[in-house]
Write a protein that binds this DNA or RNA. Sequence first.
DNA 1: TTGCTTTTGTGAAAAATATTGCAGTAATAA
DNA 2: TTATTACTGCAATATTTTTCACAAAAGCAA
Lengths: 207, 207
Amino acid sequence: MKNDEQIPEPTLRRLSSYLLYLLQMRDRGIITVSSTMIATELYLESGKVRKDFQYAKIKGRPKRGYDVNHLIFEIDKLLKWDGPKPALIIGVGSLGTALIGYGTFLRYGIRFVAAFDNDPEKIGHTVQDIVIENLVHIKSTIQNKGIEIAVLTVPEEVAQNITDILVKCKIKAIWNFTPVRIKVPPKVVVEHARFAQSLAVLTYKID
Amino acid sequence: MKNDEQIPEPTLRRLSSYLLYLLQMRDRGIITVSSTMIATELYLESGKVRKDFQYAKIKGRPKRGYDVNHLIFEIDKLLKWDGPKPALIIGVGSLGTALIGYGTFLRYGIRFVAAFDNDPEKIGHTVQDIVIENLVHIKSTIQNKGIEIAVLTVPEEVAQNITDILVKCKIKAIWNFTPVRIKVPPKVVVEHARFAQSLAVLTYKID
DNA sequence: TTGCTTTTGTGAAAAATATTGCAGTAATAA
DNA sequence: TTATTACTGCAATATTTTTCACAAAAGCAA
């Protein structure tokens, strides 16, 4: 395996699942886990787990397995989930509010530090100690707070407009919860929260 | 291509994306689309789009492309998104409430017809015309309303317990929004709403 | 009609991802 | 010390998914 190789997306996704399990194990005081243990728990093949760790350049020890703390440390580092990154949310409707309140994100590398909405009724109010700001302040807030990640929970009609603003403000990544496929320059990372796609798999498989 | 072949999951996911685009096209009065148009819009290869339609057994016409209405009809049928299925939600916290309010699900084949919570404060209150019920009624509600799909937005500590109840009530599919990997018998379909996995890909790709 | 163009449908090649199998290593027990 | 066991690490193989390439079909224009 070459050194400069990109880590496959399926591997990245699984690494985040391993992390969840590993945190549970650490809470229970478990020091080492084997690839078989992880695989059994997550319904995978142990070989796949080992291959994933190989991609992540994480080493284990024959007969012992992998050190739980080391695994957590390395996966966090790889996913850049060490030291939560400041993020902003645009669109403080019910979904936006729910996401701000979803404390678990803190564990997943992001912390909400700003919120925006264009409803004058909402501006000035707070959600979880975050003041909802007017969009006109977005550029300065992004700069002042060093925000790289934006979570997009606006109505779909304005999704592209807002995206263009975010791009102008040099945001690096957008997590898009709208059903619209937004357009960005190549250097901006976009990830769709694919509710529909998830549901498609679910409903297709029924029966 | 054999007839009894299972449709690959990536294809299912893309089909749901095509649908979104096709609905927009229909609204704009467009009658036919080519695989190239879809591909350009969604940043894919046109061959992939055609292959996907091949899996879905959807035919086009050379020089004309595909009929928008026919595509929508066939994809809806395939994903079983025609005639929304009744679904219930368990755990009416902020995320649960947001999901109930997310009207777009109606387009994606499910309609919330029941909600449950174990907080006595909440029971009897309504969210979007749905009365929050006590969990003791879950079995009869599932039977009476013919519910096959459950959306799980409970705290992670009780996720498995609630899942076991759902399985006993013969639910067919669970859409799991908790970070816990729940265990079910093979015939029950589970789909994780992988917030963490989605974020893993996002944060890894930054820079 | 004929020729030209666009677009489908699909087999086949290529690439990505998953699985298998096993040599080698470290811990443990005898 | 030696044998046994339980692992990893990785190369080889298999499978899945994507990409490519092009013949055939259908519309269109002259």
